[in-house]
């Protein structure tokens, strides 16, 4: 067992536990998009970042195992800024159709945008994107139409972020 401190709470978890899992045990929700219980974590979404005293940078909590005596912060201003910055990038390449989206109300992207306090996308929506078929008057080679070939589900590349976050490890 390993004892560490997360946001001031001392918690003891089995060795090899990820910081994210340990945080959950401590009742602390770390924002995330790519981690699920069904798969090995692989740290691509860059929302679950934390700061560890004495370590440089912001490691992903899903791929970083706990260590004895670790002092982890999940909610510093620096973290908030970076998370909001990452989310701003996600949304800068995402359709603005929440009201008519089938996922409205059950969308992790939406939830996370709220969780990190994203209010404004300063990049605008005129840049390169996977969202619109035509861009700046020309064909957008990054765009692909919705794939409805499977009888049971649709695949909309314009909304790929969550999926991308989950599978970018390929």
């Amino acid at each position: 067992m390993v004892t560490l401190t997360i946001d001031g709470n001392e918690i003891t978890v089995p060795e090899g536990t990820s910081i994210m899992r340990a945080s959950m045990e401590a009742g602390i929700e770390v924002p995330k998009l790519c981690a699920t219980d069904m798969m090995d974590s692989f740290g691509s979404c860059r929302l679950c970042l934390v700061e560890i005293q004495g370590r440089a940078g912001m490691p992903a909590s899903c791929t970083t195992p706990v260590a004895p005596g670790m002092n982890v912060s999940t909610q510093t201003q620096r973290l908030k800024d970076v998370r909001r910055g990452v989310m701003e990038l996600y949304i800068s390449d995402h359709p603005l159709d929440c009201l008519t989206c089938a996922a409205n109300g059950d969308c992790e992207l939406q939830d996370m945008a709220g969780a990190v306090g994203l209010r404004d996308v300063r990049y605008g929506y005129d840049g390169s994107n996977h969202v619109k078929a035509r861009d700046n008057g020309g064909i957008n080679l990054n765009w692909a139409p919705k794939d409805e070939s499977n009888p049971y589900f649709t695949f909309d590349p314009a909304k790929m972020h969550r999926l991308f976050a989950v599978c970018a490890g390929l």
Binding site: T36, M38, M39, A102, A103, D106, C107, E108, L109, F153, T154, F155, D156, P157, K159, M160, H161, R162, L163, F164, V166, C167
Partner: peptide, 8 residues
Amino acid sequence: ACPITTLT
């Protein structure tokens, strides 16, 4: 894995 954003 991708509840209703890309694959629905």
